[in-house]
Design a protein around this nucleic acid. Structure first.
Lengths: 187, 187
DNA sequence: AGAGCGATGTGCAAATTTCGCACATCGCTT
DNA sequence: AAGCGATGTGCGAAATTTGCACATCGCTCT
């Protein structure tokens, strides 16, 4: 049950991702890099795409789950942004090898989870209609994803610390405000 | 053929070696630390002792083989000493859990190899009697091991850079001198 | 002195993982 | 049209990992 080989595949993949864009990376290169059989790759992953989403999922998981409470949501964002920064080349290579639609679809699914857990952590939320809650989540989620994609697209130049810290609190304040308004409207 | 599990065992072992002396480390701790079955440990290693020598061999190998020529012998020593320094706690825990005899026996086997490859790299050596060569090797080997054990025993305080660089050139000079004398005596 | 406990090794069969080889397909180059 | 390299798939064999049972040892507690 200890998938060290799988982990090695991931590491080789990330290593290669720091050298070249996703679509220049071949299965053979990966298996050669960590010295395993080609079929062993296919045993663990259906695809290079599957490997990619696995890697991103794992990293997001790792970065996010460190900070579960809403209070440290900012920390979560900052950690994620710093991870992106420290793997700048890799992030960029992924960014440039994936269609905008696909990227946004993916980021949306992440942001969806984040926003949900955030909203659930806010007091007023449980008194707000499900429908309204979903609306609010959807709205801010889009904002979040838009920010992220443009930040990456512009070369991740802006300082994440300040940018996100401001945005984080702004976000939380706005969301609870929106929830309150939703609540009032309901009453 | 890609022993990632074996590597994981080694890593866990080194991690533990930075926390506690060798004889406080148990097989169960190791396998728990890297989340594998206890028998898997025994599949790869006969023993914790076997694991220890494997680890040391591997590290020595890694440190030494980077520099194969005699010219960079000093570099090899310095690299080894720096490795010892950066794993100070681990080295100390090993040092304190192993009998002096055993430690010296082990260091001797390493020094043996080092001295041999060093002597083979020196011009005059091939004209010297095998017996004399072995004598010279034995002599300097003992010096080397004595230095190493006392350096460790005294807490690895002395700066390796200066100490070893001086000792390294002194060693090489002396050895080729000794070989020349051996040669003259023969003629 | 003897029971209880946890760690050590060993043996073995079953389950999982890795490998090697063969094959069909696809896209690209010549 | 043939050649080439990469992709997936389908096995069976080999290697690795696991779970369980057992014997032993040293230690503690009473």
């Amino acid at each position: 049950m200890a998938q060290f080989t799988k982990r090695a595949i991931v590491e080789s993949f990330i290593r290669l991702l720091n050298e070249k864009p996703l679509d220049k990376i071949t299965v053979k290169e990966i298996v050669d890099d960590c010295g395993i059989n080609r079929n062993t790759f296919y045993y663990h992953f259906e695809d290079i795409r599957a490997l990619l989403t696995f890697v991103i999922d794992a990293e997001v998981e790792r970065v996010i789950t460190k900070h579960e409470s809403v209070a440290s949501l900012e920390e979560g964002f900052i950690a994620a942004a710093n991870f992106a920064l420290s793997n700048k080349k890799a992030v960029y290579h992924i960014y440039n090898s994936v269609s905008r639609e696909e990227l946004e679809r993916y980021l949306n699914s992440i942001a969806e989870d984040v926003m949900h857990s955030m909203v659930e952590g806010i007091e007023e939320s449980k008194d707000v209609e499900l429908e309204d809650r979903e609306l609010i989540i959807h709205f801010y989620k889009s904002g979040l994803v838009g920010m992220a994609t443009s930040w990456i697209g512009e070369g991740m130049k802006a300082e994440p610390e300040r940018l996100i810290r401001r945005m984080g609190s702004l976000l939380e304040g706005s969301v609870s405000e929106a929830l309150k308004r939703g609540l009032k409207r309901k009453i």
